[in-house]
Design a protein around this nucleic acid. Sequence first.
DNA 1: AGTGAACGCTTTATGGCCGT
DNA 2: ACGGCCATAAAGCGTTCACT
Length: 212
Amino acid sequence: MQPRIVIADDHPLFRGALAHAVARVWPGAAVFEASSAAEARAALQAGGAECLLLDLHMADSSGLSVLMDLRQDYPALPIVIVSASEEPRVAAAAAQLGAAGFIPKSASLDAIREGLAAVQGGDAWFAEGHAGEDDDLARIASLTPAQRRILAGIRQGLLNKQIAYELSISEATVKAHITAILRKLGVGSRTQAVLVAAKLDVDQPVAEPAQA
DNA sequence: AGTGAACGCTTTATGGCCGT
DNA sequence: ACGGCCATAAAGCGTTCACT
């Protein structure tokens, strides 16, 4: 059967390069290009895929939380992270969260092919070779989808009441989830939870301060 | 796992009282 | 009038328990 490969990257040129590499590794593969996380999801929903090549920052996605969400929704799908970052800790974080591989955008076409071939063969492939495991990321990964939504609200600086309104649930429920989140993350307050969760932004440029 | 109510704790805001 | 102090109220946070 013809393999389906989804490439999610918001740079058309790089998508093209990846598609080229994919064609070498999966001859005859049907390549679906997506320029946003939403498009990638649509492609996956339409017919699944043998592999997803995922850029971590696109217009509608930021950081490793996209990876985490997709891992949750498609546990069996090998996801190869394609990142502008070279940092070993990014690769390590991706590995921790269940990525099948990590390819820096600076990698040569040969290196990209090598990586994809490894993943196709069922092996993990990380260009930088990953550093030690990060307990915090493992903890974050253990959060349920509801808990993650609430953590996202906390990270935005929202009050429990505001988070409850956004998610259309009661404030009491938000508090209950937060208790579970704090326990899973091993921290004592929402502010500490925010600091732990900041590790998900490992692939992000430093955020601009909000306009006053 | 998700939800919500009841409860206690801490912090912040408010208002009254006092001595200077 | 003023600054300092204390009691009270209100808001927000987090825990526990019970129900679905």
